[in-house]
Design a protein around this nucleic acid. Structure first.
Length: 199
DNA sequence: AGCACGATGCTCT
DNA sequence: GAGCATCGTGCTT
């Protein structure tokens, strides 16, 4: 079986569903350096993924699917390569990419991108503030409930991922996920957060 | 530069 | 009714 990393695809190639239909930690690691692309009002907005986190199955008590399949989590049980967008803290939208086989609930939360295209537009949408953060990137790109469940392997939806730069292992930091205050161990401390080192 | 806190509304029990 | 995969402000060092 062919093992796909981001380096196997030419830059600019849209990531196919097969990229996401494999173990979530593998997908997470390989999402670093990938470009998230948004077509908003005819303009291309994009950024390089530099931080993400894995949420893996009902066993993972940090994962929304730990409470089973509900109206909110249904998307995570569906096809890999779809967007799972949820609302939290009364005002924030979070973008995840669904991974693994249909029926197994898992996803990768996109936590930070470095702006590449449409920098002025994204900055303006953020009122001049930075876009490094999971709720900041969705605000910068105009992502909300309307994108929940869409297929990210298709440009028709206006949101997709493209192969970008390869990130070597020595440039990656792996550590515990963020914000899981009331989640019990060992899930609270699982090193399922992936970041590109700042140099 | 870091910490505390309030905002604000959806989801599920 | 409680809890939340966060953010921005304002205050302290």
């Amino acid at each position: 079986m062919h093992k796909m990393s981001s380096g196997d695809l030419a830059a600019g190639t849209i990531l196919p569903a097969s990229f996401f239909n494999r173990p979530t930690l593998e997908v997470s690691r390989n999402l670093l350096g990938i470009h998230l692309v948004r077509l908003l009002d005819g303009e291309r907005l994009s950024g390089r993924i530099v931080e993400c986190e894995a949420y893996i199955g009902e066993e993972d008590l940090g994962c929304h699917a730990s409470h089973g399949k509900t109206a909110r989590t249904a998307v995570m049980y569906g096809a890999s390569g779809c967007a799972y967008v949820y609302f939290t803290y009364g005002m924030h939208w979070m973008l995840n990419v669904v991974t693994e086989r249909a029926g197994f609930p898992a996803a990768v939360l996109l936590r930070a991108i470095l702006p590449v295209e449409g920098v002025e537009t994204m900055s303006a949408r953020r009122k001049g503030r930075d876009i490094l953060g999971p709720a900041k990137l969705t605000q910068a790109m105009g992502i909300d409930a309307r994108q929940n469940g869409i297929d990210l392997c298709n440009r028709a939806s206006g949101l997709w991922l493209e192969a970008g730069e390869h990130v070597p292992d020595e440039d990656i930091i792996q550590g515990p996920r963020v914000g899981l205050f009331t989640v019990p161990e060992p899930w609270k401390s699982m090193p399922w957060r992936f970041q590109v080192k700042i140099r």
